[in-house]
Amino acid sequence: GKRLNIQLKKGTEGLGFSITSRDVTIGGSAPIYVKNILPRGAAIQDGRLKAGDRLIEVNGVDLVGKSQEEVVSLLRSTKMEGTVSLLVFRQED
């Protein structure tokens, strides 16, 4: 696979993607993946982020050990017109 650095500018329609966690172990944390890209928002305008990408970092914060809720609040904490920096891991087909 490969790592991608993606910067998304948060506009009025938001970042435009949803996340999910897979393989949750009890008391553990699961990897966070991009669930889908919404028809409006920064992600589809940028065009690089894809469903199935694994989020590794948000704005330089390592997501290991973070819950899905914590990751959502990290993403939401970005101000309007601010930039969210994502490091994602993509499995090659």
Rank of each mutant, 00 (worst) to 15 (best):
G1E: 08
K2L: 08
K2F: 15
R3K: 14
R3V: 13
R3S: 11
L4C: 01
N5P: 06
N5L: 10
I6T: 01
I6C: 01
I6S: 01
Q7K: 05
Q7T: 14
L8Y: 03
L8G: 01
L8C: 04
K9V: 14
K9M: 10
K9D: 07
G11Y: 04
T12N: 14
T12E: 15
T12I: 12
E13A: 05
E13T: 08
E13M: 09
G14W: 00
G14H: 04
G14T: 03
L15A: 02
L15H: 03
F17R: 00
F17I: 05
F17E: 01
F17S: 00
F17W: 02
F17K: 01
S18H: 09
S18R: 08
I19H: 01
I19N: 02
T20W: 05
T20D: 09
S21K: 08
S21H: 11
S21A: 05
R22Y: 09
R22L: 14
D23C: 08
V24P: 15
V24H: 11
V24G: 08
T25P: 13
T25A: 13
I26C: 14
I26V: 08
I26N: 13
I26E: 15
G28F: 10
G28C: 06
G28D: 06
G28L: 09
S29D: 11
S29Q: 11
S29W: 15
P31G: 08
I32L: 13
I32G: 01
I32T: 05
I32P: 01
Y33E: 08
Y33H: 10
K35E: 15
N36Q: 13
I37H: 00
I37P: 02
I37A: 01
L38E: 13
L38V: 03
P39D: 13
P39H: 07
R40W: 13
R40T: 13
G41W: 05
G41Y: 01
A42M: 03
A42C: 02
A42Y: 03
A42R: 03
A43C: 02
A43W: 03
A43L: 00
A43M: 01
I44L: 09
Q45K: 13
Q45E: 12
D46C: 02
D46L: 00
D46G: 04
G47T: 04
G47A: 05
G47I: 00
R48M: 04
L49Y: 01
L49Q: 05
L49E: 04
L49K: 03
K50I: 05
K50S: 05
K50R: 14
K50M: 14
K50Q: 13
K50Y: 03
K50T: 05
A51V: 10
A51H: 05
A51G: 06
A51Q: 11
A51F: 03
A51C: 07
G52S: 02
D53M: 01
D53F: 00
D53P: 00
R54A: 08
R54Q: 13
R54Y: 04
R54D: 05
L55S: 02
L55P: 01
I56Y: 04
I56Q: 06
I56H: 04
E57P: 02
E57F: 06
N59A: 05
N59D: 12
N59P: 00
G60K: 04
G60M: 03
G60W: 03
G60P: 01
G60Q: 04
V61R: 08
V61W: 06
V61G: 03
V61F: 06
D62Y: 05
D62C: 13
D62T: 07
L63Q: 02
L63G: 02
L63H: 00
L63P: 02
V64L: 13
V64M: 08
V64S: 14
V64E: 10
V64D: 10
V64C: 11
G65Y: 06
G65I: 02
G65Q: 05
K66N: 04
K66I: 05
K66Q: 11
K66P: 00
S67N: 08
S67W: 02
S67Y: 05
S67H: 07
S67K: 13
Q68E: 15
Q68D: 12
E69R: 15
E69K: 11
E69H: 09
E70K: 08
E70L: 06
V71K: 00
V71R: 01
V71Y: 01
V71C: 14
V72Q: 11
V72W: 09
V72R: 12
S73F: 11
L74H: 04
L75D: 00
L75I: 13
R76V: 12
R76E: 10
S77Q: 13
S77D: 11
T78G: 10
T78L: 12
K79G: 13
K79Y: 14
K79M: 13
M80T: 12
M80P: 14
E81R: 09
E81W: 12
G82S: 13
G82M: 12
G82Y: 05
G82I: 04
T83W: 09
T83E: 09
T83F: 08
V84W: 02
V84S: 02
V84Q: 02
S85H: 10
S85Q: 11
S85T: 14
S85M: 08
S85L: 05
S85F: 08
L86A: 01
L87H: 12
L87T: 13
L87Q: 14
V88A: 07
V88P: 02
V88F: 03
R90Y: 03
R90A: 03
R90C: 03
Q91P: 14
Q91N: 15
E92M: 11
E92P: 12
E92H: 08
D93V: 10
